[in-house]
Simulated assay, not measured.
Amino acid sequence: MKAVQQRRSLRSLFGVTVVALAMTGSAATGAAAAPADSEVETLHWASIEEYSSAAGISEEEVVSMPDMKLPDKFRVRADDGSVSDVLSSEEFGGDHTAGSLPDLDPGGGNDGKWWSVVWGGRDWNATYVPLRLGNADLGYRHYNVRHNLTSIDPFKAALKAHGPNAQSNYTALLVDSNLGVRETVVFGVQMATRTSDGRYVSPDGAYIGVITGYCKGKSKCPNAVNRVRVS
């Protein structure tokens, strides 16, 4: 009965037909039946809290699941249910070319200082967490070239949680049509107005916010993470 309830919850959350959610002991592998050659996977974002709650397993177990290989071709399902044309995981599809700077949030300052806000959002506890422009030490400038993470959509997805975990991380999962986790993107945050080393203090009184972002187990994120949107 519990497994049936979990599958129904996953259908409701992800809006897909659940083929299987394979379990090994108490942890999910996240690997479901592979699609037929004629099918193209559809990828979308989910926060780690959304996924763990729906699957009935802990966030620690989700983190320990190995990521599956990204498909060469895929579609993107937006939050509104629309599906994109077929995309290639090898093509860069972010809003900006790697290394360029994004448009700044008009409400977060546009003077190009490290504390200027690229995007800011609230988690499920209504805590405001900014992604600042940053510099070599923190924020967007710190990770966009180093880790090939140029889209802000994974961070938007990661904030669909009640707060960071014990390691001060928010995490987004790139999930396929069969609930396999294809990529795990981690955002380390500073939930204070001053960095732990005391070098930076936010002049706007909000939290420092994002320190870094990266794909788990990789020095560079694949281009696909910059192509999947949160609507």
Rank of each mutant, 00 (worst) to 15 (best):
R75W: 00
P154G: 06
V186W: 05
A46T: 11
A206D: 13
H44I: 00
L138H: 00
A206Y: 06
V40Q: 02
R182W: 10
V230N: 03
M191L: 15
K69H: 01
L174F: 10
S89V: 11
K160G: 03
G112A: 03
N226H: 02
S151P: 09
M1V: 13
V228T: 03
D197E: 06
T97G: 09
A3F: 13
E49L: 08
G121R: 08
N144K: 04
V201W: 01
R194S: 11
T127W: 00
A192I: 09
Q190C: 14
S177C: 07
V83K: 07
P71T: 03
D123Q: 01
D37K: 06
R132N: 01
V4L: 12
Y51D: 11
D204S: 10
F74R: 08
V225D: 06
S84E: 05
G217H: 12
A54D: 08
G209S: 00
N223A: 12
A54I: 05
A36I: 06
K156A: 13
S177V: 01
W45V: 13
T212R: 12
D137P: 02
G217Y: 10
P35H: 08
A126K: 09
R141P: 00
I208W: 05
A157L: 11
W114S: 05
F92N: 09
I152S: 13
S219Q: 11
G180L: 08
V185M: 14
A3G: 05
Y214E: 02
A161I: 08
V63E: 10
G163N: 08
H147C: 02
G94C: 04
S38A: 12
V201N: 08
D72W: 00
V129I: 15
I57G: 02
D95Y: 09
F92G: 02
D105N: 15
G121D: 14
R182F: 08
D197L: 04
T24N: 01
P102W: 13
V19Q: 09
A34L: 14
A172T: 09
G107A: 07
E49M: 09
W124T: 11
E61T: 02
A172Q: 07
E41S: 13
S53H: 13
A192S: 15
A158E: 12
S116V: 03
G107W: 01
S47T: 05
L21G: 03
L101R: 05
G134E: 02
A33R: 15
L104F: 06
D67S: 15
R8F: 10
G121F: 07
L133P: 00
G25I: 07
K2R: 15
T193P: 07
E183M: 10
F187E: 04
V19I: 12
S38F: 04
C215K: 07
A33K: 15
